[in-house]
Design a protein around this nucleic acid. Structure first.
Length: 103
DNA sequence: AGGTTGACCACGG
DNA sequence: GCCGTGGCCAACC
């Protein structure tokens, strides 16, 4: 069963996350399977176009991976980026390949 | 209140 | 492709 936006919001809030972190994670939820966005694009989506570095810091604490698909966020130069959830960057790459998002 | 730490970016060399 | 440098921003100590 898919995680609804409202349910995610209440969980994240109960974790004591900041508004910035919550906005990042909610925006990440909107990335469709089979697509990727960059950290920079994600920053622009939440109205903080220059906070792309902080976006990475926020995703690092994603308590709902991979239900909130932070593995679909990659670097602007096309490289994979990192992944702190169980399985690490290797897992990130394999999930993206399984979704057909990357080579 | 100030310094440090990152799942980053752009530009060079 | 690699590495260094300066810039950026939120969280953390």
């Amino acid at each position: 069963m898919a995680l609804t936006r409202d349910r995610a919001l209440s969980i994240l809030k109960s974790k004591g996350m900041t508004d910035f972190q919550i906005k990042v994670l909610l925006a990440t939820m909107r990335i469709p399977k089979g697509e990727v966005v960059t950290y920079k694009e994600l920053a622009r989506m939440i109205g903080r176009p220059k906070a792309y570095r902080a976006v990475g810091t926020a995703l690092r604490n994603n308590p709902l991976a991979p239900q909130i698909p932070c593995h679909r966020v990659v670097r602007s130069d096309g490289s994979i980026g990192s992944y702190s959830a169980p399985g690490g960057t290797r897992k990130k790459r394999s999930m993206l390949m399984a979704e057909g998002a990357i080579k």
